[in-house]
Simulated scan of single mutants.
Amino acid sequence: MPTIPFKLTIFLIGSILFLICLIFGIEYIIHVKRRKRVSTTKNVKWNSPAKPTVRESPVKLTIRENPAKPTGQDNPVNSPEQEPSEQEPFIPISPINCGEWAERQVVQDLLNEGINPKAIFHNLYIQKRSGEYTQVDVVVATRAGLIVFEVKDYSGWIFGNEHQKYWTQLLAYGTKKYRFYNPVMQNAAHIQAIRQNLPQNPGIPIYSVIVFFGNCEFRNITCNADNTFIIYHNSISQIVSEILRRPNVNFGNKYEIMDLFTKAVQNGNDPMIVTSHTNSASYYDRNRPDPQYTGIHRYYFSPLRKTSRRGIFRLRIFR
């Protein structure tokens, strides 16, 4: 019976040990990243009754005195960067515990940029002309216009363009494929519903920002729509700063905007409205393509996003 040479035996044993260490090393990296993300979310402070740190911003949403309002009534809107007084609590209009963690992180990033919490609206339910409701993740009112955020939390590789009804998510190096509704079209529908409810503010700029959280990487993502941005979450500050550098907008009636969004936030506390939206979304999602599996792996490793300057899309890729 032939015997295996001693050197070959040592080589085989070393190779096996190396593969085992590599597998456990990758698993440990994924575990640490997940724990870091969870701990970051738990440490988010939403209500700071002390003196909050708010950086000054070039944006200021000034409200002209409305003759329809009694002169003794308080102005319901402050400028986005106006620092609240010491007696006024630093509390956003939206409930601090609503929505997904990624949506709350977007709100926290906006607060860190110096945006007034009274100009940030989170988890809105806006009624459409059909009587149905559409749910919007985050809206910010600025002097340059409105910024509407659609927040996604995905891993893997993301493929799609503005004209495809469904985008593709690849996991486990392409062995698992999922489809999800085009977020550009989804946010465009949100913006359309907002415009329908603002007859006194026609033509104001509304910017669509699709934010991706998680260990995802854009692959062949193209979008040429005006005022539309597709970004990683770490580019929120950059894109908001760019929008705020644009010219001031001549609003028709700013009270109409604030009343619409304040009511939309309150709609999120109505179980009937939330249930109606959920049922409606399930009905329209009935023809969504089923997941496609091209293989089965024992271990799942989501592709780690490469360090790259790519991240903001709008007519071109910013570098």
Rank of each mutant, 00 (worst) to 15 (best):
V32N: 04
A119G: 09
N215D: 05
A141C: 05
R314D: 08
N182F: 01
N269Q: 13
P183G: 12
N248I: 10
I26Y: 14
G160T: 14
H122W: 07
I191D: 11
G131N: 07
S130A: 02
A172C: 13
N224Y: 01
Q192A: 11
V209T: 12
S94P: 04
K254G: 08
N279W: 12
F18Q: 13
F159K: 10
R143S: 03
N197G: 03
F301Q: 02
K176H: 07
D153T: 06
T134K: 15
N287L: 15
L110S: 09
Q292A: 12
F121K: 10
C98I: 10
I20K: 14
S57P: 01
L198G: 15
N253I: 00
K254F: 00
F229W: 06
T41A: 14
N234Q: 06
Y283D: 13
V140D: 13
V106P: 02
R319L: 00
Y125Q: 03
Q73Y: 07
Q164I: 06
S241L: 05
I96M: 12
G99C: 03
P52L: 06
P5A: 08
Y300D: 12
A50Q: 13
R314G: 13
I239A: 00
R55I: 06
N47E: 14
E27I: 04
Y284F: 12
E83V: 03
D137Y: 02
H190R: 08
K128M: 04
T3K: 09
N47P: 01
F18L: 13
A68D: 15
H31C: 01
P70R: 15
R319Y: 03
Q266K: 15
Y125V: 02
Y173G: 06
L170K: 07
Q200R: 15
I115C: 10
R129E: 10
T62S: 12
F149Q: 12
N201G: 10
L110Q: 09
T9F: 07
L260S: 14
G214Y: 03
G203L: 11
S241G: 05
N66M: 04
Y28A: 02
V54D: 01
K118M: 00
I16W: 14
I194F: 06
L110A: 10
L244S: 11
M272D: 05
A102M: 00
R179K: 09
R309A: 03
F149G: 08
N279K: 12
A102S: 14
T307E: 02
G145S: 08
I126A: 02
F213Y: 09
M258P: 05
N75G: 01
G72N: 06
I296N: 10
N220G: 00
N97E: 15
G268H: 07
V184M: 04
S208L: 02
P247N: 04
I158Q: 13
V151D: 08
I20W: 15
P183A: 07
N116T: 05
P95H: 15
P2S: 03
L12P: 00
T278K: 12
S94T: 08
I4V: 10
K177E: 12
P58V: 08
Q192H: 03
N234W: 05
A102W: 01
F212P: 06
E86T: 05
P247A: 13
Q73N: 00
V211C: 11
P52Y: 09
K177F: 14
L171Q: 05
H31D: 00
D259E: 09
I296E: 11
F149I: 04
P84M: 12
Y166G: 02
I158P: 07
